[in-house]
Amino acid sequence: MTLWITVLAAGALAYGLKLGGYLVPERVLEVPWIDRVVPLLTVALLSSLIITQGFLADGVPTLDARAAGVGVAVVLLVLRAPFLVVVALAAVTAALVRLWT
């Protein structure tokens, strides 16, 4: 039940933000710092999520098979591999590391 509410709440808020962009008078948001902070907010959140997903276990900094997957992902991104290839090979890498250790 909680999960359904979570999904519906996230969905409603996501749509509300999208629609709000079309309805809010532009002048309301013409404050200089918003243009700087919003792109950085996206970067900061995505970067934090790399840590929670790849380098934390129960709230404790941890280096395990996931780190190997992230390493492979970075190499593939440098090589300009497409999104799905990056994600799939990162998963395969972590799975193989777990198999061998």
């Binding site: 790399i50 991104l77 994600v87």
Partner: peptide, 8 residues
């Protein structure tokens, strides 16, 4: 690890 890679 795929989730972490997705964010990267």
């Amino acid at each position: 690890a795929a989730a972490a890679a997705a964010f990267v």
